[in-house]
């Protein structure tokens, strides 16, 4: 039995380097199938990958982050907090040189904060919105998401919770509402930083289910600010429009998504080592001779 264990262990360890090499091969193959997209990992210096109004993360830490306005102009960004003091539930931050720096509602208060900016021009209203997760304890965003912030809204339903994130190949629901009421049979367009486009339609409750495409390209050569804890990110933007009394309203919600976990994981190797552990425990199931009397 010990020989079997050694042989299994050697075979498994010999495969480890191969699995590590394989992870890079997978990324390369996917990049080829997705065409000549040009990912921009660092949101702070990236050229616009969508014409829609967006608030793109441009650095920061748990106490303050910066956003770059893309595709629109505004003189301030409004930040809605998930809780805290009433005078901090909604705070305006001035835009300077196309960037804005925002802070959580209180120094030690975290969780999701909603950032939003608005441009009104030639009878058109364009709203950019995103969320920022500050890494401190804070109120859940349940109440935050129900609050009305503009006429036409795209509301995540729900947001990924801590230890979770939007990822390739996953389905996520978004509520589209007009002045608080759900908009049924309404188009919701998805654009990603890697050049994918798709359109989903809302159901009777105003919910559209969006599938984030599996479109990540080669790993970014120089990981920038879009890499958190070594994890790669890319941007996506959801947009929808509505015409009311001759006025066009366009609202966008942008955030980031991560590669599908299986790109950098191997379930086969996981199962193999799990089985190795099971085999190692099998001798415990054999009755000792003196136990049989």
């Amino acid at each position: 039995m010990p020989r079997i264990h050694c042989a299994l262990l050697c075979a498994l360890l010999a495969g480890a380097a191969q699995a590590h090499q394989g992870a890079h091969d997978v990324s390369g193959a996917v990049a080829e199938t997705n065409g000549p997209s040009s990912p921009h990992g660092d949101h702070g210096v990236a050229a616009a990958w969508s014409d829609h109004p967006m608030l793109l993360l441009a650095g920061g830490d748990r106490g303050e982050v910066a956003f770059r306005l893309s595709g629109f102009n505004a003189d301030h960004v409004t930040v809605f907090a998930p809780g805290g003091a009433p005078d901090r539930l909604e705070v305006d931050y001035p835009v300077e040189n196309g960037q804005v720096r925002i802070q959580p509602a209180a120094p030690m208060m975290g969780n999701y904060h909603w950032a939003q900016a608005r441009e009104e021009q030639d009878g058109a209203v364009r709203v950019a919105s995103t969320v920022q997760y500050f890494s401190n304890p804070g109120d859940a965003p349940t109440a935050l998401l129900t609050r009305l912030r503009s006429e036409l809204e795209i509301v995540p339903h729900p947001l990924p919770r801590e230890h979770s994130q939007y990822r390739e190949s996953e389905k996520w629901a978004f509520l589209v509402r007009w002045k608080g009421a759900p908009l049924a049979a309404h188009a919701l367009r998805l654009d990603t930083e890697y050049g994918s486009h798709s359109t989903a339609y809302t159901d009777d409750q105003g919910i559209a289910t969006v599938v984030l495409p599996r479109d990540f390209g080669v790993p970014k050569a120089a990981p920038g600010k879009a890499v958190a804890h070594g994890r790669e990110r890319a941007g996506f933007v959801l947009s929808t429009s509505h015409v009311e009394e001759g006025r066009t309203y366009l609202t966008a919600f942008n955030y980031t998504y991560a590669p599908e976990s299986q790109r950098s994981r191997s379930i086969a190797w996981g199962a193999a080592f799990g089985l190795l552990g099971m085999v190692a425990a099998v001798p415990l199931l054999r009755r000792k001779e003196n136990e049989n009397g």
Binding site: Q262, R265, W269, G270
Partner: peptide
């Protein structure tokens, strides 16, 4: 599923999975 982006992550995960298998049986 084991993380394959680095040998160290793979090794730590392999240890965890082996321990899990051992505990299960």
């Amino acid at each position: 599923a084991l993380k394959t982006q680095s040998p160290l992550a793979f090794a730590i995960g392999a240890l965890g999975n082996t321990l899990f298998g051992f505990i299960a049986v």
